[in-house]
Structure formats: C-alpha cells, structure tokens
Design a protein around this nucleic acid. Structure first.
Lengths: 198, 198
DNA sequence: TTGAGTACGTGAAATTTATCACATACTCTT
DNA sequence: AAGAGTATGTGATAAATTTCACGTACTCAA
C-alpha cells in the first residue's frame, strides 16, 4: 500500500485525474489483478470502466496507512544511521515528525542535530509523556537494544522500528518491526553466487 | 537464512557446539518446523537426534549466502544515508567491502569519508573494472536514480541495492533489491491506527 | 439509444508457503 | 545391549497468496 501511495503522489504531481490498475501495474511492477485485490480489500475505491480517482485513492490510502494524521516519533541512538534518519526528509513528507532524539553517550548529549537537542535516555519516559510520542525508531548498538526497548515499553510506547541487528523480546501489544540492512545485501550476493554456478 | 547465520554467530561466540531447530526457534522467532524446512532445502546439514553443528552450519550458510568470499561494493550517493552505510561495520563483518564511493556533487568529490575518497560518477565504469566491483549500493536522490542505474548497468554491474524511493527499470539479468525506509514506519502507523479503532 | 470499449471487483483455480505429525536416526544411561 | 530420550527430514495437510477469467458497471461516439 505504501508503494501505491507513493506512486499516486507522482501521478498527482503530473496532473493525472484518474488511474487504472493496468497503469499502476506498469509503474509499480505488481500485476494489475494483485493491485485490484489489494485495494478491494479495504473498500470499493474504483469505478468500473473508469479507474481510480488519483486524489480520492490517495486520501483513502493515507487513512489506511494512518498517515492522515501527524505522528510524533522518538529516535534513540544518534550514531551515523540515527543522524541519517534525522536528516531524512521522507519521514516528514509522510507525516512523521521526529520530536526528540536520545543517546546514552555523554559526548552526544546536548549537541544539536537537524534542529533537535540530543537528550539522555533517562529523560525518555518524561519526554514521551510531554510530547505525546507513540512511535520510536531505534538505531542503537545491538548490545544496548533490549535494554532500551524495555525503557521504551515502560514509558508507554507501543510501536518500535528497530535497526539494531538483534531480535527483541517485547510484551504482547507492542509492535516491533525489524530492519536489517545486511539481509538485503546478502540476498543479492546469494543470487550472484547462484548465477555463477549455473 | 541471514537471520540464522547471524544467530549462529552469537551462539558460536558463546561457545555452543551444537544447536537444535527448537533452540534456533526460540532465538529467531521462526517456528522449528520452518527452520528445518528452510535448511533442508539446501542440503542435509543436521544430524538426527543431535542437531546442527554450529560451525558446520555457519560455513554452509556462508556459502549459500555467497558471503564465503569477499565482495567489492560501490556506493553511489554520499548523502547522510550514504555516509551512514560507509561507516556501518555490519557490511564488513559479512564480507562486503565498500571499495569506492561516488557522487555527482562537486562539493563532495575529493573529500575523504571512512578512508575513501569520493569520486565523480563519470569515473564509475573505469573504477568498476579496476576494482572488480560486482555489486552497488545506491543512496542517490530519487530523481537521479534511474540515470545512475543505467550507468551502473553499462559498466557491467549486475546486482544493485537501491535506497532511492523509486522503482527502477533494469534489463533482464540485473538484480535489483529495493529498500524503502518509510514503508516500515508506515506499517507501524497502520497497525497503531487499526488498534485505535478496535 | 445502442454498441463498442474500458476497467473494476471477485468467485474459482492455481500456486506458494507454512504447519503438523511421525518415521528415522542418533546419544546416553543403565 | 536395550530402552528412553532427543531431534532431524519429509510426506501430508492446511493456510495464505497470487493469478485467471469473467460478470458487472461505466463512458463515449455515432
């Protein structure tokens, strides 16, 4: 659904009013049937013989993805990856505002990055409450990850995007999404290796 | 398979000789049956009644994933994300060496980052040949992505990891893996939204 | 108004993926 | 040596996902 929304953004920018599943298929690479099925799952957004209204579908998808409202996000771990995410405009465009940044390294605490002052992790619970943060992005070292997650859960956060290469244990009701950058590269090296053999 | 390999690394570090699918299941979160199926797909690595040899399985998985040899990688686009990836040690640990970094921004060309001098994209084909690069990571802006990919393909690269939020068109035989950081966050905001409704 | 063209939505079929359950094979103790 | 315990590998089964194919609904031109 994210991909569809992004594609619709491009289409809207180029002035298209209406779009068919066939056209979406061309651009996104999914099959047309797949796209129709996906969309029909959430409601009847299209008109037969016509297609989908670009603007209408954008609004629907925004609501489905929950990006029709602004989300406050905490970022924990201001290493290289953390800094990159802080500066990354894609989140803002999608309605995610990184409202606070935390790190345990005394040398980083107090410094300003992309307009945010880095705070110590001990302030986490307090700031989460103050700023109404519901979502966290973890870019901590693997060793610290579980401990940080426990703090996050304790402060009431219920959705976490984890970049640390470690599977985390969280109580029921806390949603964790893991991103492992090396997995993707390994997939490529796997297919290159396979190709070599055949 | 990547996850299994990473888990085995941890187990090896803590001195375990042999590991069962049940134990792997605990740590990785996949079901034991799933793990056995996955592994059996590539060969008979385990011993009944005993389990898998941690070291033996690591070697097998390394070979399967193609990380039993060193890969030379080119990085194109030295923005924040590019810098983060350059400094990211996970790639090195897995046998990926970023051998060259490229950018089209004149202000960046010539600067040194993580021990690499940034080169202009015009040098791409030449350097790919010289360094035997087979794999590229693209962290360019979306607008430049397709053009850069075409250059990469022309210079003989056949596997690309793309962080630019745009679906790329590549000829048959060129493997492209897309990473879109916002998709993961949107998935979380989607499930938070759903939860609110119920 | 009618007919040709377009394109969604969706049952049905096909394919893929995951789970179950157990025969097989190994280890260790008595 | 035998029996109890453990754990793989894999047919069979179940579940999920994708694709096919077509009825339905809309547009436009003549």
């Amino acid at each position: 659904m994210s991909t569809y929304l992004r594609t619709l953004g491009l289409e809207a920018a180029s002035g298209t009013q209406s779009i068919s599943s066939a056209r979406l298929s061309e651009v996104t690479g999914f099959t047309a049937a797949q796209i129709r099925r996906d969309l029909a799952n959430f409601g009847h957004f299209g008109r037969r013989g016509v297609g989908y209204s670009v603007e209408g579908l954008r609004l629907e998808l925004r609501a489905i993805l929950g990006v029709d409202i602004e989300w406050s996000v905490a970022l924990i771990g201001v290493g290289n990856l953390g800094k990159a995410l802080l500066a990354y405009k894609g989140f803002n465009q999608m309605g995610f505002t990184i409202a606070a940044a935390f790190d345990n390294d005394q040398r980083k605490v107090g410094s300003t990055l992309s307009g945010l002052t880095v705070e110590p992790i001990s302030k986490l619970a307090e700031r989460v409450r103050e700023l109404g943060i519901q979502l966290a992005i973890m870019t901590t070292p693997a060793e610290a990850a579980q401990e940080v997650l426990d703090s996050l859960v304790a402060s009431g956060i219920r959705a976490v995007l984890n970049f640390a290469p470690r599977r985390l244990r969280a109580p029921e009701g806390v949603q964790i999404s893991n991103v492992d950058l090396t997995i993707e590269v390994e997939y490529l090296s796997h297919s290159l290796s396979q190709r070599r053999l055949s």
